[in-house]
Amino acid sequence: MTAPLLKVEDLTISLASDGGSLPLVKSLSFEIAAGETLCLVGESGCGKSLTALAIIGLLNRRIMRASGGGIFFEGRDLLSADAEAMRRLRGDRLAMVFQEPMTSLNPVQQVGRQISEVIVEHRGTSEREAEREAVRLLDLVRIPDAARRARDFPHQLSGGMRQRVMIAMALALRPALLIADEPTTALDVTIQAQVLALMDELRREFGTALLLITHDLGVVAEMADRVLVLYAGRAVEEAPVEQLFDQPTHPYTRGLLDAIRQLLKPDIERLAEIPGTVPVPAKLDRGCSFAERCGLAMPICGEKRPVLGPRGSRHSAACWLGHLPVEQPA
């Protein structure tokens, strides 16, 4: 296998508080190959967005610390890169689409200019050339009458159109990696499907790798090549998408999938749920963080933390089930 485009190694992100530091993402490792789509799945607060911000270098440095092995992008460690080097990468090789298309565009600037600005900043092309390219990009994201729409202000566009503008902006310079943090959460379901399809199509066309953050398993099934399930800041299962849906091995993943599958049954009396809530990050971290809510918990689960172990080719899970405790916990 060739070197991955992005390699996150043993990444820990901590909240630096007065009393010390509180880890929110704990020794997370994953890889994305060029052109691949990896979905980062997990419930609110499990560290999905923090991971994305760490990659693009926009963690709030005053309160957040990223540490660990490193974030290697195209062979370069982003954790140790300086601010100017990161700025050059952002928008060029590394781009991001946010959840909120309503507020992510400057309300007092024409959308065409906002796209052309990215091109001018990174390529130093002339304004006029960049504006032509912006119109071409708007056309590419299927904004009708792009030349006229480029002169519109954000409030003149619908939510779906604004998110298309954001995608056009992110893909303007054909980045190698696009990070999309819940890009369709704020949109109608029908628009969601359109935007996702468009993103996938452009991604294929440009050969861009995608790190898609979502808590919508429907989106995962649609878009992902591989899936990484996070729980309370740790990776609990990683698998190619078909395998994850066919043979989930971690009880948490199973719980998530069961919650959706039951909707297909004709007569549901009560929605299945995973009992309990996510443990607070400050809690003493002994054993498996899911143990308290797990229906299959064994005595060992409360004592030793399971590490990611193989469950087949390219499939791994962090669970004592089907994984005899011969290895030492990390």
Binding site: R87, L89, E117
Partner: peptide, 26 residues
């Protein structure tokens, strides 16, 4: 702290263009 300023930073905007184009007009 506005999302569009964050978005402009995410797009790799230089400090002076962030200040002049995105913050000052507001």
């Amino acid at each position: 702290e506005q999302a569009y300023v964050e978005a402009a930073i995410t797009c790799g905007g230089r400090v002076h263009s962030i200040l002049l184009r995105h913050i000052l007009p507001g």
